[in-house]
Design a protein around this nucleic acid. Structure first.
Lengths: 342, 342
DNA sequence: CATATTTTTGTGTTCGTGCACAAAAGCAAT
DNA sequence: ATTGCTTTTGTGCACGAACACAAAAATATG
């Protein structure tokens, strides 16, 4: 080292103050010259403290979308196992505003070093974020971004592009005089997830642009017991349908109706997300293709970002990361299982 | 700790011997109980040595396939910058066996702690691997695997599935009475890359299976100056062509012929690999879609694996990792740029 | 039994980092 | 110049890991 003691260097690196200007410059010059790089891992060792992370997302059963986010979180904790992190899961019901509110309420009373939020309800999420901002607790969004909040980062997918991507796939395969049947859930517009809405807009915009707008028809999928019957009915009412599409991860519901009606192969079903049920349908041919986000990468990245936020000194906020959109069919499916980095 | 000194634990962890059976068992019991996890980063600090890695792949210009592999290697070195690694690049000419032989010869004379090989020529690669085996130097394959060698791991793509994937995409979009035109390079079969051959087989098998075998015609792309003319000629000779396909990364060559002949939009061109030139064609519409491997992930994973091989104690060989195959079109392209983990 | 040899075990130092505390230097008031 | 206070700087220890070396215990040889 050039001139001073380790203590002084430490004060400079952490900007703890009480350092003379002369020495500061001298040390910084040396740091630059030798290309000093902060070592996050030895730092973690030396800090010898643990971190408490809160993860709040819609509740997910095994094999569902949010379970993959958790899997990514788990992988990151494994990868960074030299940094002691205690994750605490606070799932909420994505169809119940009240559940969300009460869970977020509990969270805002917790002590935490970082929070990962998979947001659904805008108002509730903003309220939580305000409280976290006030406490100075960093948070990261996965799957969706909420405007007006100030997360350290967000890891999402551009759903509008996602819809356009679907549009292109449909356009590429659509035959003369054939139509596309869009299945949508029964819920009112305000109640549908913002992701689904954005996908729909992306799709519609694309089809309009390409002059295919009038080749799309719609059908409603009810939440009731007789859904299958109603789906089959819709399919039969539209004999020209070549493509059936679903903009959320419930494509397998349509798939079972298709299997029921022995329409497999006649109708190409395209859905979203590599959930276990969808994968099964992809394998048996009742779903032709799935558009996928990378939920695991979202979870992985979120943890990674919180760690670097807490341990690094540079603190710039509001990064927006858009992750890739993948197209998965039977042939490339085996290689999409749980891959973050090979 | 329970009973013994740090030195003894150290001897046990490294199986350095000279430890009494009684203490060994006692210590191992404690390690299990407290869930001991080796910390690779502090280990690297205290080892205070650097590692010398050799990277040998076909020579790549900026924006080409192998440049992405290097980018992934670079990212890994950045991520693991607390472990001192000196990479040494030894590119060879992928179309010249002799160049490869002489480069591999040089490599086998070098001192190295690990080697990353992007293989092309089977015989030359096997010769190199034998020498490395003898010296006990670990090596990893990227992009392609060579049978008979004993790499620590390989990070490749299942090219047969890749061809089948392409087949499915073609089948989904092919109209009645239309054909597929496959452009292939002039080289003799033995000289074509094994990846390209495997893709071709995967594609052919799929089309046969689906009864579409007779809808595929072929044309040769020469390496000469008048390639464009010949390509255009082939396209004009086959007025029924809906899809043009190229199984290597030279799709942009066909694309410029298509632009020249003002056939953009009339003929759907599908190629391989997100090289800079191909990306440009994707953006201007002359290429409809690209099937992509994840060269960056290959490079990243290779470095990562060599590090864990050198620093961890468990040493199992011959892992084969098959990475995903992605479909990229204009709409999802922006999100595929240089993503390893967001 | 004493000594030599081998095997087993413990200690001390190192790395990069964080932090508490001690030491030194600077400066003002007496 | 001495005292007291603040600002600046240095020292020592900790963390988990690696390794050289010293110390102690066990065993062999005379």
């Amino acid at each position: 080292m050039a001139g001073v003691s380790a203590g002084t260097v430490d004060r400079i690196l952490h900007s703890r103050g009480n350092v003379s200007e002369a020495k500061r410059q001298a040390v910084e010059a040396v740091l630059n010259k030798v290309g000093y790089k902060f070592n996050i891992h030895t730092s973690a060792v030396s800090l010898k403290r643990g971190y408490h992370f809160i993860v709040t997302t819609p509740l997910a059963g095994e094999g569902e979308y949010w379970a993959s986010v958790s899997a990514g979180i788990h992988e990151a904790l494994e990868e960074y196992s030299d940094i002691q992190i205690l994750p605490d899961y606070f799932p909420y019901d994505q169809f119940d505003e009240k559940s969300c509110r009460s869970v977020f309420d509990t969270i805002s009373k917790q002590e935490a070093d970082g929070v990962i939020i998979g947001p659904t309800f805008r108002k509730e999420t903003l309220a939580l974020c305000r409280k976290l901002d006030k406490k100075g607790i960093p948070y990261v969004f996965v799957d969706a971004d909420i405007e007006g909040a100030h997360p350290v980062a967000s890891y999402t997918v551009d759903q509008h592009s996602c819809g356009a991507f679907l549009g292109r796939m449909l356009m590429a395969g659509l035959h003369e005089g054939k139509t596309i049947l869009l299945f949508r859930s029964e819920r009112r517009s305000e109640e549908r997830s913002s992701n689904t809405l954005a996908r729909e807009k992306g799709l519609m915009d694309f089809l309009q642009e390409q002059g295919l707008g009038n080749q799309l028809v719609q059908a409603i999928v009810p939440q009731t017991e007789d859904a299958e019957e109603i789906i089959l009915d819709a399919l039969n009412r539209h004999p020209d349908v070549q493509y059936a599409i679903v903009l959320n991860s419930r494509g397998h519901v349509i798939a079972s109706a298709i299997k029921q009606g022995q329409l497999t192969g006649k109708i190409q079903l395209i859905g979203f997300d590599l959930t276990r049920k969808n994968v099964e349908c992809l394998l048996d041919g009742s779903i032709a293709a799935l558009l996928c986000q990378r939920p695991q990468l979202q979870g992985f990245s979120a943890i990674r970002r919180l760690i670097s936020w807490l341990l690094y000194h540079s603190k710039e906020k509001n990064e927006r990361h858009f992750l890739p959109i993948d197209l998965v069919v039977k042939e490339n499916l085996p290689y999409y299982r749980e891959v973050i980095r090979g």
